[in-house]
């Protein structure tokens, strides 16, 4: 690992790789340049508004990559944890008085954000243990199916558990974080907070995947039975990374709830989960940098399409989805490890 890194930073290495048509390098360059062009063209305000979207998707993608790329568990249910985190933070911090709204009433806690955050993450962790124990029984195709099931069950709970989530009415007036007496109401301030948490997520993920634990995970991904013979309990490892990954997704959820200040079940539909998996695969499996790139490409794709003259604005989301679908097919055909990935499904 270290030897590889050392070689990568030798003088001339980058030029040699670029000349050799290294897909990883060119893909990274392309997306970074694309992002930079957008920034310069559209200005800072634009950067701030899409930066927040990017940061949330990036936290989600990095956390999901821990499970999909490193542990080899193709989970399509990650949006469920995102949703649980979002709803927990929303309900705990919302200061709307629901009795007056005459729709479904839920209790008002009005906690400060930084008090609700650890509680939300812990709740997600508990949910993840339960779901993980069930999911650990399955593998491959059936694993995908049951993880779909988790996403659908979670969505139905958000939509129909009205006593808890107010169903389709959604949760209002979710608090913005406050540090001391300083409330982060501005977009720029919130973006900085998001980036701090993204950096934290990346750091934690990097520590995990470069530790002995991370190495064992990759071995589990390759051959679970073989690594068990050497004394590792694969189920424990899989559960541990599952819970960690879910908690990071919960963190993203809590941040998302606070960022939008209003959430309803439509943010947590199955399709979002499928898009998230696509981002992770597009960027690259078993690569943290890949997930960042994937999230960046995903956000830029949507923003880029807004400027296509022949595409009506209301179809941008769909067009992005279609392009992503086609990209997935092409990747599976030509590059199953994603743009900068290190693991082929």
């Amino acid at each position: 690992m270290t030897a590889l890194a050392r070689r990568a930073f030798q003088p001339g290495e980058l030029r040699r790789r670029a000349a050799a048509g290294d897909v990883k390098l060119w893909a990274s360059l392309l997306i970074l340049v694309w992002a930079a062009v957008f920034m310069i063209w559209q200005g800072l305000g634009f950067a701030i508004s899409i930066g927040s979207v990017f940061a949330i998707w990036a936290i989600l993608a990095v956390s999901l990559n821990l499970v999909v790329g490193y542990a080899g568990l193709l989970s399509v249910g990650h949006i469920g944890f995102f949703g649980i985190g979002a709803y927990a933070a929303a309900i705990l911090t919302s200061n709307a008085s629901y009795e007056q709204l005459r729709t479904e009433a839920i209790p008002t806690f009005a906690w400060p954000f930084f008090a609700a955050l650890p509680v939300s993450i812990a709740l997600v962790g508990v949910a993840a243990v339960v779901v993980g124990v069930v999911l650990n029984r399955f593998r491959d195709d059936i694993y995908v199916l049951v993880s779909f099931g988790f996403a659908i069950i979670a969505f139905n709970v958000f939509l129909n558990g009205r006593g808890l989530t107010r169903g389709a009415f959604g949760v209002h007036q979710i608090a913005r974080p406050a540090i001391g007496g300083w409330e982060l109401t501005g977009e720029l301030e919130f973006l900085i907070l998001l980036l701090v948490f993204l950096a934290l997520t990346v750091a934690v993920s990097w520590l995990i995947v470069t530790s002995s634990f991370g190495r064992v995970l990759t071995a589990i991904r390759e051959d679970e039975q073989a690594i068990e013979v050497f004394g590792y309990r694969a189920t424990h490892y899989k559960l541990a990374i599952w819970v960690i990954s879910a908690m990071l997704a919960g963190l993203a959820g809590a941040l998302f709830a606070s960022w939008t200040s209003f959430i309803d079940p439509n943010s947590f539909i199955l399709l979002e989960s499928v898009l998230l998996v696509s981002i992770v695969i597009l960027g690259g499996l078993a690569s943290i940098w890949g997930s960042l790139l994937g999230a960046m490409a995903f956000v830029l794709l949507e923003e880029g399409m807004r400027f296509l003259p022949f595409l009506p604005a209301e179809y941008v989301g769909q067009a992005r989805q279609a392009v992503l679908g086609i990209l997935l097919v092409l990747l599976m055909l030509f590059r199953p490890q994603g743009l900068v990935g290190r693991y082929r499904l």
């Binding site: 193709l74 995908v144 998996v277 679908g325 990209l327 997935l328 097919v329 499904l345």
Partner: peptide, 14 residues
């Protein structure tokens, strides 16, 4: 088979 599953997922999305 997961590669096929993901490829067909792309088709479904599109």
């Amino acid at each position: 088979p997961l590669i096929m599953l993901v490829a067909s997922l792309g088709i479904l999305l599109t």
